[in-house]
Design a protein around this nucleic acid. Structure first.
Lengths: 339, 339
DNA sequence: TTGAAAGCGCTAACAT
DNA sequence: ATGTTAGCGCTTTCAA
């Protein structure tokens, strides 16, 4: 067995509580789980015994015996900007009262990691697995299908759900952003993004954005794609770079708000008038962007809501209720003042 | 037993693998855990059997038998700004390669919640528990002491560690911020904060800031404390309110960067010159604040590092190594351009 | 290097 | 309302 220090805990079990309360183990178990009928007087004696000796239930044993845990595995690509913590927050709000706990793992946008994490989380026999997006390696997908438990794919509504999908269409987001800018009269577009090979949803938005622009006969003048994760500083320097190469661009679509806010800061520092000289559009609708002197033009994504609904879906399934296969939560274009 | 749907998974066990490979269960177990000696040829046969039938180990059973899980319970006050996700990210980076998984719970800054979450997480017999700060309700503290496992208190280095503490001194942060502003010649101070009854570390910074200011004979003119969580918009409106009441303030200390950035935005919108007319100081050193046209004057907190060190400490303990009781990771005052 | 036996601490199922 | 019995799927001895 592994090294373990400081074992002051005498590893109390149900038997200890049972002895103390003068009842059987199963009665104690019933009191703890609030299941089955126990006389009020007995319940009280058991409760007293529990707190007297300081018993802490062992859910590992409980889960083994009852063939199911109250853990929910969560696999997200990143904790580096507020988007996924927001999803987590929604999830947590939905599940914690019911006693479910989230086991969180991060892929850093690598689908290969996802496979290992799925395998690892599955071994905890979780009540559900929540994964990000609908793109998975074939064998990862197969594991999820075979797992025989609730699988929720969050953030994306463009694909075919393995079990339950809750998200929105990023393809549509890219199109609507382009349509909005075209309607406002912009004609020479640029794009600034972060590591696209990894962020598949940002990639989808860029695809539909550029194709919509081109189909409208406007020009897509150029783009800068920075390596690494998205951030305000990298958006700021990327815009400097883009404008150096293509001074005639009149609107820039950023991969997300972090990057776009960096763009706004560049313009502020350089005295570039927004939106007259240059329009800037982001994605996510972060509070920060809306608090700018000129609110950022962007698309508000219901991240908290997605997490919350994912949690509700897990609970509904657990309770034996039907859950729709696909929920498109939509998004809201915030006109702002930067385009 | 609880309702569970879609049970395509035939619940394969070690016995199934053993039969398939023509060995005993314990041999399969040894192969899976890479412990004990197994002939190379046998190992290969077992591996083949595992992938052929698609066996997924059951760690719940494993943990029960070996009296210890690879779960690490984490209790943080919030997921609402990037600070705690940053800590989580550092933790995850440190522990995931070793196969540890984080079980995350959020208190929303309520110490009463903390007690329930500690109890709940303890029941998973985690390898360690990571909690935020060194303030706990007496019985929560007692549970942690009695738990007999590695306890890491993160973020704060001002208190007496239960077991291991990794963080920095918020008392010192408040003092040094005040000293910095006094040295720059500011004399009429204001404070803007969010719900202080809950954010005890912000509260400590405010205490030492104001006492340092007063001891220096400067004036503490007024403050606005907003209800609810910190955010850019609320910092923005709070500054508007503070300046209406106290137009003569020349420097404002904000409870954190989110709030302070809101203050900067207010000044931008109102044409208030920073730092000549008003100095603004935050806390945390978020990337966003440093990317502002005028970088925010603030204190950089090593959040990722704190999480990472917490993870390393857990692993070190697990491996039987000594870990210092208190690690003060310090902080860095970023002079910026707003004070 | 491999295996047999004996639990880990709890809960389901079936009494009473 | 309460108890008895028999595992859950694995790992830890202890043998061979």
């Amino acid at each position: 067995m592994r090294a373990r220090r400081g074992f002051r805990q005498s590893t109390l079990t149900l038997a200890d509580v049972a002895k103390e309360a003068g009842v059987s183990e199963i009665t104690v178990s019933r009191v703890i789980r609030a299941r089955g009928s126990v006389a009020e007087e007995t319940r009280r004696r058991v409760q007293t015994a529990i707190s007297k000796i300081g018993y802490v239930p062992n859910r590992i044993a409980g889960s083994l015996a009852s063939a199911g845990s109250d853990l929910i595995g969560v696999i997200i690509p990143s904790l580096g900007n507020i988007v996924f913590p927001d999803v987590l927050r929604g999830l947590h709000d939905a599940i914690s009262e019911r006693g479910f706990r989230a086991v969180v793992s991060v892929t850093d946008y690598r689908l290969e990691s996802e496979r290992e994490l799925v395998r690892s989380l599955l071994s905890w026999r979780p009540a559900a697995l929540i994964v990000t997006g609908c793109e998975h390696e074939p064998d990862t997908r197969q594991m999820l299908v075979n797992a025989g438990l609730t699988i929720v794919e969050v953030m994306d509504a463009d694909g075919e759900a393995i079990d339950i999908a809750i998200g929105m269409s990023h393809a549509r987001a890219g199109r609507e952003t382009a349509a909005f800018l075209l309607a406002r009269g912009y004609r020479r577009f640029g794009y600034i993004g972060h590591d696209l090979a990894r962020d598949l949803r940002a990639c989808k938005r860029r695809e539909t954005f550029t194709s919509t622009v081109r189909e409208a006969g406007a020009s897509f003048a150029g783009e800068v794609v920075t390596p690494g994760r998205s951030s305000v500083p990298s958006g700021r320097s990327a815009l400097a770079e883009l404008l150096t190469a293509h001074g005639d661009i009149d609107a820039v679509y950023f991969s997300n708000d972090d990057m776009a806010i960096g763009g706004v800061f560049h313009c502020m520092a350089e005295g570039i008038a927004i939106p007259d000289k240059l329009a800037i559009v982001g994605f996510n609708g972060l509070a920060m962007g809306q608090a700018l002197p000129q609110p950022l033009t962007t698309i508000l994504t219901p991240r908290f809501d997605i997490g919350f609904r994912a949690g509700l879906a897990v609970i509904a399934r657990f309770d034996g209720l039907e859950v729709p296969r696909l929920t498109d939560v939509g998004f809201t274009l915030l006109p702002g003042a930067t385009a």
